[in-house]
Structure formats: structure tokens, C-alpha cells
Design a binder for these strands. Structure first.
Length: 777
DNA sequence: CAGTGAGCGAGCTTCCGCTTGACTT
């Protein structure tokens, strides 16, 4: 019997396929790409047709060794990597390292991991598609050139260790531009009018009908005028309009929509969604989670139909085919769905269970009938005004897919005020007015991005791939271009006019506006780098740069263009502008001159310095030694005012004297602190105190609290050995010569003896030392 | 652990897209 080796990309997939095939087949996994350009330098021979220097990555040496050995033992190797550009390239690299002839090697593909699909694929092997492989090489080489030529420009002109790239730099641009849009937004106020009427419901009970003025009124005077007219008006039902409508379910999940929905409904950051989904995938509960295809296999549709029929009834079934919107989608996999629809619950922990539940519901709902809704719009006439009010009602006639699942929204529309069922009403009916209010509202700028809504935007622009959304978002945060933070809102007053019992009262109310939770904000360094790249490398920063590139890749795939010719066409002008920029561009610091310091008369400016954003008094030509102060975490060089900048120089500030020594307040690397007798005391955020305004009594209290905490810190001490057992933030730990050691959970710290302590120190596992270990080499 | 911001120079940093583990301060 002849043996065959089938190579796929993912080990979980290998396991599944092994179940479908007999002992004649050995299914192994390549764990993704097996060769790549080394990290240390650009590794492309520009003068030799951009020849890439591919090497087997360190973490793939073992895999490659195993595959080589197996390839020798079998009669045939089948390349079953994903059916997309990257998958085709992996197969080609496998040929290269396994010594297979790329012209004759057997390539098999399938877009769903079902037994039928796999067997069909095995019977229809094809040859390697070198067009796809070459398009991938162009993609790889181009990304390397952009990343490895642009980043060093930033090291020279902005700050070391920064990075730029086709995907990440555009992601940062999106965030920077949105922030500026918000900063420059002029909020206008307007008035919304709504009325409450007393009416009888079906059972004859008094109930409330809410009606609104469909349009906005420009100002208080207009609102007041309408209310005045209403004072002496009668209100009657003018018209009742009923409109049947229907709602359709959303398509099954792909990576980007899963990330968005898990963020909206479960509050997961995108990286968490991916790692939880990975666990579900490895346990065999769901199909592959990195996909851009909304299609379901026939097997899956049948299973969903069975489940819907038995759980909800036949009238809830509607088989639907979804097509993928993104035009650059590669559709190498199915949509993300449960592998077994009969399994309503799965997952090893709460997070996995919740994510599985979401996937199960979304997939099931995608094959369910539409919800039927009857919308009613009732107009209310005002006898003394030409305006009309409107009441909207919605009745669910048939729930359909809503029985299971409704997609979440990114922003609540407060305009969309649909209340459920309306009471019975008749045309010409008179209405009893309870009250009418005119409420001042404000126009809002576009919302800041969350991780998930940024993924949505990137996907719309065709930038990035399912496997890179989460890593990209983490990269731009790691580089310090973007921060995910909360922001407190500010109070805002608004006017409410209320007409009731025939008199109009005007009141001021306050609301909190602009509060943000887990939103992406650009940092100053992010803005400075963005502006620099926009000025000197606008082509790469264009939102459609990737789309244009994809267009060229299509031509390579079709064999119209050589991949190196395409890269060359891009490289020449790009490299020239890199050299020109290095030669001629000024350093970028985002410097803004805010005016003069009133005390010294010297220039007051803000800029990004070596340690981040700072304010400075005195330009280099004015004074020998300028004064510097770091900006607060909430401030930015783009929006800080001169007053705020001057206030930064108040620190360090002497609060007063305590026990014959000065108490100083300042802000350091770890936030605000007090300094007294050479001891640091943090001014914690929750204490509502800050170093600018803190007074002596509060300062003394903090110092004394710290003394108590320090006193409780010591559990025991072995002075001769220089060992202490201390209470820390994460529980008790051992300290020796400035090194900390973890105490195993099961050990009671209070009862430790010296030999036990020494034992813990000796057996402490090495710290995670990836970077350190490498540095030593 | 907390205060820095001159200037020099060595050595380092960096991309995107496929995959999983090995780590948790």
C-alpha cells in the first residue's frame, strides 16, 4: 500500500482531516509559513531583481526537519495548504525545502473542512499556481522594503525604535485624523420637542402616548414659540399610517465581524476574542477563526436547518446564501460557525462559553426566516400651529431570527425613539395633553474608534488580513502611537422648556458629555510621526495604497507582469524620496510656540523630546538653560493652552514643613508623588488629590498612611542573609539583594523558615527571558 | 522606582502575514 503525506497549515486541521482519511495518509502541519526573510536586515538583493534571501525561521527548524524526514519515507507528498496567496506560497516554499519539483508537485485545495470536500480535493489535484506565488513574493518584498526603509528614517528624524509600515501607519493615520476631526468639531445646539398625551389603552386604562416633532428647531426662541402656540391648542390625530416591514439576519461571522460583535456584546478587546476563539477551534467546537468568507458549507446549512426545525419549527427556517462584500477577500475558509449545531453550549470556561454562544446564535440566525414588523406612524395635529408631531410604534408580527439573535450597534442613536406598541387610536381623535418639552441637544462629532471599530474601518479599506487585525492593533499601541484609555466627560448645561398645566417653565439641567471608555487616542508621538509620513511619503499613507497594490498583484497572478518588475516600478521613486528625506528633511518634534512666559518673558513652547511630550520655557537662542516640564498624561501638544503649560512649571512645589523637613509635591515617571525625608509617597488617583493643589494636612495624612503600610509590609527578615519576606501588591514575596522571588501559592508566608526561603530562591524558575537571553548572545 | 532634556558614539531598533505555544508582572 502506498503512503501519502498531506501537509496542511494548522495542526488542528490536520487532526480533523486525519479522522476522515485512512491509514494510507499521514497528515502533518507546517504551522504557517516555514521560510521568511530574516529579521536582522532587509535581506533583498535590490540590484539582482530584488532576489529575496529566504531562510527557515528558527522556530520552524524542528517542523521542517520532521517534514523532510516524512517526505522521504512516503511515496507521495500532497500540498494541502490554504487556497489563497499565502497558502500557495507556503506550498511553494515547502517544495523548495523538501526538494520537490514545483512544476510537478501535487497541490490540493478545499474551502471547507468536511469529509466530502476533502475526498473531492484528493481526487482533483492540480499544479502549483506560480502566479499566486509570485504575487505573494511581491507582497512580501514590498512590505519589507516599505517597513525597513521607512523605519530607519523615523529613527533619524523623530526617535529611535519607531516603526512604519503599509498597514500600521495607515491605521495610525485613521486615529490621528479622527481625533483632529473631534478637536475641530463645532458643536451646535438645537431643540427637540416631544409631547406626552393621556389616552386609553385596549383595556380602557389610562396610558401615555409619546409624540415628537420630527424636525429639529434651531434655537430656544423657536422652541418657545412652538410651546406658546401649543398653550392654546387642541391636539388631534391627523393620520395613521401602517407599514409592514421586515428585518433580515446578519451574515455568519468572519474574523472582523466576530471581533466587532464580541467587543460590543462581551466587551472583549480584539486580541482576547482571537485567543478565546483559538481555544474553541483547537477543542473542535468551531471552524477556523481567521477567515474573510461568509459562506457556509452545504453540510453546515443542513445541520443548521435541522437544528432550527427541531428547536423552533419549520416556519423559522430560511436557507440563505451570503456573499462576501470585500472585493479583495481570498475566501480560503468557511465562515466561523459551530462544527456541531446540535451542541448549544460549549467551552471550557465562561469566556469560551459566551463566545461560543455568540457564534452559535449568529450562525443559526443566519439560516432563519426574516422578522416581520408592522410599523405605525401617527401624526398629531396642533390646532394653533402648522407643525405636526409624530408618534411611532412597532409591533413584531413574527419574530423569526430575532428569537435567537440580534446584531449589536456601535452607537446608540438617540434620535431613533421607537417605542413598542401604540395604544388604539383613531383618525380625528382628540388627545389630552400632559406636557410638552423642548430640550436643548447638541450635534456630536464622529465617535472615537474602539479596537473593534478600527478593525471594521481597516477591513473596509482592504488593509490588513484576518490574521493581522489583532496584531496590528497591538503594534500601534506598543509603539506608543495610540493609546486605549478612558476619559472623563465634562459637565454641560442645557435648557429644558416645559409646558404643563398651561404654563411654560424654563430650566437649566446638566449632563456629562464626552466621557469615553476603552477608546483609541493618538499620542503626541503618533501625531508627529503621522504628520512626518504624510508630508514625505504621502503615497504610502493614502487610504487606497493597498487597494492599488492589490490591483498590481492581480496582474502578476494573471501572468501579465513579472513580480520583480512591479516591485522595481515602486522601488525607484520610493527609494529616492527616502534618500531625499534623510538628506533634507528637518527633525520632526511637533513643536508649537504657545507665546511668552509672563514671568521671564522667554518663549513658551511644547514639543516631543527624548522622553516624550514636554513644555519648555526659553528657546535655545534666548537662554543657556531652558526650563523643562513633562506634559500630563491627559494633555497633548496639539491642544494644550499656554496657561496649562505654564501651570506645569509649578512643580516641584513645596507643600509645607512636617517634622522639621520640607514636603515636596511633584510628578515623576510613575505619577504624582510627595517627597519627605527622602521618602516617596504616591498621591494615588482615587484620593482626589493632586500635586498642584494638595495642602499640608492631606500630605501629612498620606505620609502617615504610607508609614503604616510600610510597617505592615514586613512579614519577617533574615538580616545576615539579607533576605526579607514582604507583603507586596500581589501578595507576599521574598526579596534578596534587590531581586524578588515568588512564593508558591500553597505556602503560608507567615510560617516560612530560613531553609524553606533559601529553597524557594534556589528553585525559582527563570524569568521569561526571551529578549534578555537573545541580548546575551 | 520617582530629580533627566548638552553632545559624542557604539549598538540597537523596523515590515506583513501564515501558524502555535510559553509566558504572566
Amino acid at each position: 500500500m502506498s503512503k501519502k503525506l498531506v501537509i496542511v497549515e494548522s495542526p488542528s486541521k490536520a487532526k480533523t482531516i486525519q479522522k476522515y482519511l485512512g491509514d494510507d495518509y499521514i497528515i502533518e502541519s507546517s504551522y504557517g509559513h516555514v521560510r521568511d526573510l530574516p529579521k536582522k536586515d532587509i535581506s533583498i538583493d535590490v540590484s539582482n531583481n530584488f532576489e529575496p534571501n529566504y531562510v527557515v525561521s528558527d522556530d520552524k527548524k524542528e517542523v521542517v526537519k520532521k517534514l523532510k524526514k516524512l517526505a522521504k519515507e512516503v511515496d507521495e507528498v500532497l500540498l494541502a495548504t490554504d487556497e489563497d496567496r499565502e497558502g500557495e506560497a507556503i506550498s511553494w516554499h515547502l517544495c523548495e525545502i523538501l526538494g520537490l519539483d514545483a512544476k510537478t508537485a501535487k497541490r490540493i485545495t478545499y474551502t471547507e473542512v468536511t469529509k466530502d470536500a476533502i475526498l473531492k480535493a484528493l481526487n482533483n489535484p492540480r499544479k502549483l499556481n506560480m502566479g499566486l506565488v509570485n504575487a505573494q513574493q511581491a507582497r512580501r518584498v514590498l512590505d519589507r522594503i516599505v517597513g525597513y526603509e521607512l523605519s530607519p528614517v523615523l529613527w533619524k528624524k523623530v526617535k529611535p525604535s519607531l516603526s512604519a509600515g503599509r498597514v500600521q501607519s495607515v491605521a495610525v493615520r485613521i486615529i490621528v485624523e479622527r481625533e483632529r476631526e473631534i478637536t475641530n468639531f463645532d458643536s451646535n445646539s438645537f431643540f427637540k420637542v416631544s409631547a406626552l398625551f393621556d389616552v386609553e389603552d385596549k383595556q380602557g386604562r389610562r396610558t401615555v402616548l409619546k409624540a415628537e416633532l420630527p424636525k429639529r428647531l434651531a434655537n430656544e426662541a423657536e422652541a418657545m414659540q412652538l410651546l406658546e402656540e401649543c398653550k392654546n391648542s387642541n391636539f388631534t390625530i391627523g393620520n395613521i399610517e401602517k407599514k409592514p416591514s421586515q428585518k433580515n439576519p446578519a451574515a455568519p461571522f468572519i474574523t472582523s465581524t466576530l471581533q466587532q460583535e464580541a467587543n460590543r456584546k462581551l466587551g472583549f478587546p480584539v486580541g482576547k476574542t482571537m485567543s478565546v476563539a483559538q481555544k474553541l477551534y483547537e477543542a473542535g467546537h468551531i471552524t477556523y477563526m481567521r477567515t474573510d468568507s461568509v459562506s457556509l458549507s452545504q453540510t453546515a446549512v443542513n445541520a443548521a436547518v435541522n437544528e432550527i426545525t427541531s428547536s423552533y419549527g419549520e416556519e423559522y427556517v430560511k436557507v440563505r446564501k451570503y456573499s462576501t462584500k470585500a472585493k479583495d477577500a481570498q475566501e480560503a475558509h468557511e465562515a466561523i460557525r459551530p462544527t456541531n449545531f446540535g451542541e448549544q453550549e460549549a467551552g471550557a470556561n465562561f469566556d469560551e462559553q459566551r463566545l461560543y454562544d455568540l457564534i452559535w446564535k449568529r450562525s443559526i440566525a443566519s439560516q432563519m426566516s426574516s422578522a416581520k414588523i408592522e410599523r405605525t406612524i401617527v401624526s398629531v395635529e396642533i390646532s394653533e400651529s402648522s407643525e405636526r408631531l409624530q408618534a411611532k410604534g412597532e409591533v413584531l408580527v413574527f419574530d423569526g431570527f430575532l428569537k435567537v439573535y440580534l446584531e449589536g450597534k456601535d452607537e446608540e442613536d438617540d434620535d431613533d425613539d421607537v417605542s413598542g406598541m401604540l395604544p388604539p387610536l383613531a383618525v380625528g381623535q382628540d388627545l389630552d395633553l400632559q406636557e410638552i418639552t423642548g430640550t436643548e441637544r447638541f450635534t456630536k462629532p464622529s465617535a472615537r474608534y474602539t479596537e473593534a471599530s478600527l478593525v471594521k474601518k481597516l477591513e473596509e479599506l482592504g488593509i490588513g488580513r484576518p490574521s493581522t487585525y489583532a496584531p496590528t492593533i497591538s503594534t500601534i499601541q506598543k509603539r506608543g502611537y495610540v493609546e486605549k484609555t478612558n476619559r472623563d466627560g465634562v459637565e454641560r448645561k442645557y435648557t429644558v422648556l416645559k409646558l404643563s398645566s398651561n404654563s411654560i417653565v424654563s430650566n437649566q439641567d446638566t449632563e456629562v458629555t464626552g466621557a469615553e471608555k476603552m477608546k483609541l487616542f493618538p499620542t503626541d508621538i503618533g501625531s508627529v510621526v503621522n504628520d512626518f509620513l504624510m508630508e514625505h511619503f504621502s503615497e504610502i499613507m493614502e487610504y487606497d495604497f493597498t487597494a492599488q497594490m492589490e490591483h498590481s498583484f492581480d496582474k502578476i497572478e494573471e501572468g501579465e507582469t513579472e513580480w520583480s518588475a512591479m516591485v522595481s516600478k515602486f522601488y525607484k521613486p520610493f527609494h529616492e524620496s527616502v534618500e531625499d528625506t534623510i538628506e533634507n528633511a528637518d527633525r520632526a518634534s511637533g513643536e508649537r510656540i504657545l507665546g511668552k512666559d509672563p514671568k521671564s518673558g522667554h518663549t513658551l513652547l511644547v514639543r516631543v523630546g527624548r522622553y516624550g511630550p514636554m513644555a519648555q520655557i526659553g528657546a535655545p537662542d534666548e537662554v543657556e538653560k531652558p526650563q523643562y516640564a513633562k506634559l500630563l498624561p491627559t494633555q497633548s501638544i496639539e491642544t494644550i493652552t499656554a496657561e496649562e503649560a505654564i501651570a506645569l512649571f509649578i512643580l516641584p512645589r513645596v507643600v509645607g514643613e512636617f517634622e522639621d523637613e520640607e514636603v515636596k509635591a511633584a510628578i515623576g515617571r510613575f505619577g504624582p508623588y510627595l517627597l519627605h525625608k527622602k521618602k516617596f509617597v504616591s498621591i494615588t488617583k482615587d484620593s482626589e488629590l493632586d500635586p498642584y493643589t494638595i495642602q499640608l494636612p492631606d500630605a501629612i495624612r498620606l505620609i502617615e498612611e504610607k508609614r503604616v503600610a510600610d510597617a505592615n509590609k514586613f512579614i519577617m527578615e533574615f538580616e545576615e542573609e539579607g533576605i526579607q519576606v514582604l507583603n507586596g501588591r500581589w501578595g507576599p514575596y521574598i526579596r534578596k539583594e534587590k531581586k524578588n522571588f515568588k512564593i508558591p501559592k500553597e505556602v503560608e508566608a507567615e510560617k516560612l523558615t530560613l531553609p524553606e526561603v533559601l529553597d524557594i530562591i534556589k528553585n525559582q524558575p527563570a524569568k521569561r527571558g526571551k529578549s534578555k537571553a537573545k541580548a546575551k548572545k
